[in-house]
Simulated scan of single mutants.
Amino acid sequence: MSSAPAGFAKVYGSHPFHLLLMTAGFAVVIAVVATMKPASLWNPASWWQSIAVWFVVAIIAHDLLAFPLYALVGRLMERGLRRRDTSRVPVLNYVRLPAMAAALTFLLFLPGIIEQGGPAYLAATGQTQEPFLTRWLWLTAGFFIAGAAAYSVAFVIDRRRGQQPKAGDAQTTA
Rank of each mutant, 00 (worst) to 15 (best):
S40N: 12
L19V: 05
G25N: 12
L133M: 04
L92Q: 11
I114E: 10
G126I: 10
I59Y: 14
Y121W: 04
F67V: 15
W138A: 13
Q163K: 11
A6K: 07
F155C: 04
S50A: 06
A174M: 06
R160S: 08
P131S: 03
S2E: 11
Q129V: 00
A27H: 09
P111R: 02
V91L: 14
V56S: 05
F17M: 10
Y121K: 00
T125H: 08
V73Y: 08
I60M: 13
A170I: 15
S46C: 03
Q129L: 05
V32N: 08
L139P: 00
F8I: 10
P119G: 01
V28C: 07
H18L: 12
F67E: 15
I30M: 06
Q116S: 08
R84M: 02
A154H: 02
H62F: 15
E115D: 02
E115Q: 12
G142I: 02
L104D: 08
D158H: 14
W136L: 09
G168T: 09
F109L: 04
F132K: 04
P98R: 06
V153H: 12
P111A: 05
H62Y: 14
P119N: 04
A24M: 10
L108K: 05
P38K: 13
R84I: 01
W47H: 11
E130Q: 09
A124W: 01
A148P: 01
F55M: 13
G25Q: 10
M1S: 12
W138H: 12
G7V: 06
A4F: 13
G147F: 02
F55Y: 13
A170S: 14
L107V: 09
L76E: 04
F106Q: 04
A24N: 00
M36P: 00
T172L: 15
A71V: 07
W42A: 11
W47G: 08
H62V: 07
A58T: 15
W47T: 14
F55T: 13
R159M: 11
I114N: 03
T172V: 14
D85K: 03
T125N: 01
A52N: 02
I114Q: 05
G112A: 03
T134H: 07
W42S: 12
V153K: 14
G74P: 00
Y12N: 03
F55E: 04
T128E: 08
I60Q: 10
R79V: 04
I60N: 05
R161P: 02
L97E: 08
R82Q: 04
M22S: 13
R135S: 08
A6P: 00
N93K: 11
V33T: 14
G13M: 07
